[in-house]
């Protein structure tokens, strides 16, 4: 065995040398065909939406027939067919804080406001628009509504909730 190892040791050297050469050759081939790849990412500020004002139709005195009250997103109000509109209705206001990018808006089209003894009033929501720009300082987004006041609507306070969502486009 000792003789064998004397003989085989130089052979191993040859094999190791050949292997090293091969690796070196591969490295040279790799270097010769090198290419640079690009990588990029855009970090976008987190988006948040907060309701600052709720949609408020104020105080309404129904008439003997059906009427309609509209609170526009710009704050204007219209009262048709009702005896009185008091308290100055106002639109809902949402504060959108995020990157200066357009946002797609989706909102429930209708909200039911429930009052005394499960009586309800339906409101068609009137959002400012389908798209809004967010901003780091916060952008206001208004939502108005149009409400049918049926004759004989029981007096009381009516309230309801709706969902609204904003998404970077």
């Amino acid at each position: 065995m000792r003789d064998g190892s004397i003989i085989s040791y130089p052979l191993m050297r040859v094999i190791l040398f050949a292997g090293a050469m091969a690796c070196s050759s591969l490295a040279m081939v790799h270097t010769a065909n090198a290419a640079s790849g690009g990588a990029a990412v855009t970090i976008i500020r987190s988006l948040s939406a907060t309701q600052e004002e709720s949609l408020d139709f104020g105080r309404i005195l129904p008439a003997a027939r059906d009427g309609m009250v509209t609170v526009r997103p710009d704050g204007g109000t219209e009262c048709n067919g009702v005896t009185l509109c008091l308290g100055e209705g106002k639109p809902a206001l949402f504060r959108l804080t995020g990157a200066e990018m357009p946002l797609a808006v989706s909102i429930d089209p209708v909200v039911a406001m429930t009052g005394p003894d499960a009586a309800h009033v339906m409101v068609t929501l009137l959002p400012s628009g389908p798209v809004v720009m967010a901003s780091p300082a916060g952008t206001a987004y208004a939502v108005g509504g149009q409400m049918i006041v049926a004759a004989g609507t029981p007096p009381g306070i009516y309230a309801g909730q709706y969902n609204i969502s904003f998404e970077y486009q």
């Binding site: 139709f57 909200v111 009516y158």
Partner: peptide
């Protein structure tokens, strides 16, 4: 970390119906 690309909110709507 919550999803940052979208945000949802719940809106409130109210009215007070007066009696004659």
């Amino acid at each position: 970390i919550e999803p940052a690309h979208a945000a949802s909110a719940t809106g409130d709507a109210t009215v007070k119906i007066l009696s004659a």
